[in-house]
Design a protein around this nucleic acid. Structure first.
Lengths: 253, 253
DNA sequence: GCGCCGAGTTGATCCTGATCAAGGCGGCCA
DNA sequence: TGGCCGCCTTGATCAGGATCAACTCGGCGC
């Protein structure tokens, strides 16, 4: 039921892995290529990004990409797999900060403290592009589009952090969580209505500040209401508008 | 009891207003001057910052610095006074995102959407430095320290956003809130143990995702336990270590 | 085969904090 | 001066979700 990465089980999506694309080893769906392409930059600047990117992985489920306290030297773009970030307070209680899908970037919250304030743990077998941050900053000073892209990445994450801030019911939270995942998969070219939940119910609950039992109950109810089909971690959204309605309390005007 | 800005009431702090300092009209405690000074940049670069800064205000309590949906053109550093930012969902429920003190910067979460995703409302009579963001980006590309400073500002706000994320008791939240305010006042040169709460109990409650009644009860209890002295909005921390202990659940390892 | 273990589900009970309600206090304006 | 209104406080009740507990299921190692 919760086989990890059941290669043949995922139905429509070509498997959540950003293809390597071109011969130059640069990811087609890279989190940064758009910064160059969209601004009309071509080969030369891409080549400069190549110089400072380093492909790392695979990391297997449960392995750390970085740990709390590690000195901050680079940010990571997810090429394939899924990651959770988490903090632990001094009583050892874990707090999941976020989940990251292919094409998304982790480590931005380490710029200010200059060491990672959280752990990053692979939920799947995962691959990354590692970008030296000092090198990237220097490049950003020469490529306005890259600088702008970095500002936007940071600002975007600020916005999503405040979504979780509101006090909302368990139903609202779970519905909004599913719709948000759906949107992010869709934005990366995967199926919006059918995907695999790489994280456990416990992780979802922790992220949404609910108990695992509550998440389980809500999902069961959503299924009985015909909003979703779910079996283990395989999910299908049957009524996206309905879910959106439930979750809209978390979304801005 | 809740006279707004009772000029003579505040005891130690020289009044929470960043002094204008030098003859060139640049704030001594400006959120950005440190970027130049710390990196050894002097007059020339400061002069360039002058070109793109604009002093605005006063805004009186309740007035908007910007509104949800306004096109994003600039960020604002608080020179004096206090600001709250808030979002409203479509049912009209308000969600307070944060409070900003002199020397802090608002508007960073508007970079990505390119329009302000929230309102900014003055709680006090307030003054600001307005920085054109396009101009600032251009300058940042030429002044590495400024670019770094912007990255750090964004990253820092990311970190503080995730503090609120955890599920914590009312006591923990209120204690951590008071200690955080204390630390921020201290960082700006004001008294750490004695300050004025510019925001209503309702605003505090909304920010902490509690009911106003709960905040009131917790403060009353803290007072009866000898942790604080509070009368209206005048606050004194009597036992900072005790408060820190209560609130440490919200703080990272 | 057996037993262990972790993830997930479901049921019963409890508790924190929300909600409802009433009243005090001070500021402000007619 | 009186009356209104917001903010704050305090008390009584309620409810959503946490917690405790029991059970299923599938994987895995011996």
């Amino acid at each position: 039921m919760q086989s990890k990465q059941p290669a043949g089980r995922l139905p429509e999506p070509p498997s959540p892995m950003a293809d390597d694309g071109d011969a130059s080893r640069f990811c087609g769906t890279c989190a940064f290529s758009s910064a160059c392409v969209a601004a009309g930059y071509q080969k030369p600047e891409l080549a400069e990004l190549h110089c400072l990117v380093e492909h790392v992985g695979p990391f297997h489920a449960g392995e750390h990409i970085f740990r709390t306290g590690d000195p901050f030297r680079a940010i990571f773009a997810v090429r394939g797999g899924t990651v959770k970030t988490r903090m632990s307070d001094r009583e050892g209680r874990e707090q999941v900060l976020g989940f990251y899908l292919p094409g998304e970037v982790i480590g931005l919250n380490a710029i200010y403290p200059e060491h990672f304030p959280c752990d990053a743990v692979a939920l799947d077998t995962s691959y990354f592009c590692r970008f030296s941050f000092p090198a990237m900053s220097a490049l950003a000073a020469r490529i306005p589009a890259l600088q702008k892209h970095l500002f936007r990445l940071l600002s975007k994450e600020l916005g999503s952090a405040s979504l979780l801030a509101g006090d909302h019911s368990a139903d609202e939270r779970v519905a909004a969580f599913l719709m948000e995942l759906s949107g992010r998969y869709a934005a990366r070219g995967f199926s919006a209505n059918r995907f695999h939940l790489s994280m456990s119910r416990g992780d979802i609950a922790n992220y949404l500040r609910l108990a695992a039992e509550t998440v389980s109950r809500v999902l069961t109810r959503f299924r009985s209401q015909g909003l979703i089909q779910i079996e283990g971690r395989e999910l299908e959204l049957l009524d996206p508008p309905g879910l959106r309605g439930l979750g809209q309390g978390l979304l801005p005007e």
